[in-house]
């Protein structure tokens, strides 16, 4: 018998601290597999955020830098400007990190067209601090800090990151994927791999937004959270390619 599937060497053997059923583990695997398959793991420098994935450096088998909250794209910019084509630099960020406290760093690394890859986990909530409203929390969604549901009159509307960034000329590739089903996971892997291939080819700024779950803070079982994601998040955050300069700009 041949091995059809086993844990990639792109991940360490450290058991993650993520809650049961959390999509972070799936996305970690997709990123690590992509780096191994593209034969760049040994020259990759990751930048992790503040949030649930703050300790991602324990799980990936490559060099890592821990950034202050929201600053990962700036840290990655500094690292990539020094390392240049010799290395691969990516950030792994959640929604609060990337789309609230780090909005400026995200937008400006994008508009500069930095040749980095951003993996953005959108699960519509602040996980690490215990389930507060995120910039991507859906209208009406109950969180610890929107106990009556997100009221757009006072708390504003969610940020659609791929749509927003796709308006910037500096962005080479922006795609939104999800991890709620195996077909979606397979598509997510292809997008992540493409985002890294773009960097290898020197094409510029690539971001993959991964719509993911947070069973613990959504108050659902892992299986229920995947269904909630399909029913509620995907209508607000449609999957697809928002920008791909390979195909001539916005799609």
């Amino acid at each position: 018998m041949a091995v059809v599937f086993e844990k990639t060497r792109g991940l360490t053997d450290v058991a993650t601290h993520y809650c049961p059923g959390c999509g972070h583990g799936i996305v970690h695997r997709l990123v690590a597999e992509s780096l191994v398959e593209l034969d760049v793991l040994e020259k990759t420098v990751g930048v992790c955020p503040v949030g649930c994935s703050v300790m991602a450096y324990d799980y990936f088998n490559c060099d890592f830098i821990e950034a202050p909250h929201g600053r990962a794209p700036a840290v990655a910019t500094g690292a990539k400007r020094v390392l240049g084509d010799k290395n691969i630099v990516f950030t792994y960020q959640g929604d609060g990190d990337l789309a609230a406290i780090g909005t400026a760093e995200t937008v400006h690394s994008a508009t500069r067209g930095e040749n980095i890859t951003i993996i953005f986990i959108n699960n519509a909530i602040y996980g690490m601090t215990g389930g507060q409203m995120a910039p991507t929390t859906l209208p009406g969604q109950v969180t610890q800090t929107t106990p009556y549901g997100r009221d757009v009159k006072t708390a504003g509307y969610p940020v659609r990151v791929c749509e927003m960034l796709s308006t910037l000329d500096g962005v080479y590739y922006a795609e939104r994927v999800a991890v709620d089903s195996v077909p979606h996971i397979n598509a997510a892997k292809a997008a992540i791999k493409k985002a890294f291939q773009n960097q290898i080819d020197g094409k510029g700024f690539s971001i993959v937004e991964v719509v993911s779950n947070c069973p613990t803070n959504w108050g659902l079982s892992p299986a229920e959270s995947m269904q909630w994601l399909r029913d509620n998040m995907l209508p607000y955050y449609p999957l697809g390619v928002y920008k791909d300069k390979d195909k001539g700009g916005n799609e």
């Binding site: 018998m1 041949a2 091995v3 059809v4 599937f5 086993e6 844990k7 990639t8 991940l11 058991a15 993650t16 993520y18 049961p20 059923g21 959390c22 999509g23 972070h24 583990g25 799936i26 695997r29 089903s181 195996v182 996971i185 397979n186």
Partner: peptide, 17 residues
């Protein structure tokens, strides 16, 4: 088919065929 392994967030599943 490895569907189980691909959805496992903890890389706890190995599949041979």
């Amino acid at each position: 088919c490895a569907m189980c392994a691909k959805t496992c967030p903890d890389c706890a599943i190995t599949v041979e065929k």
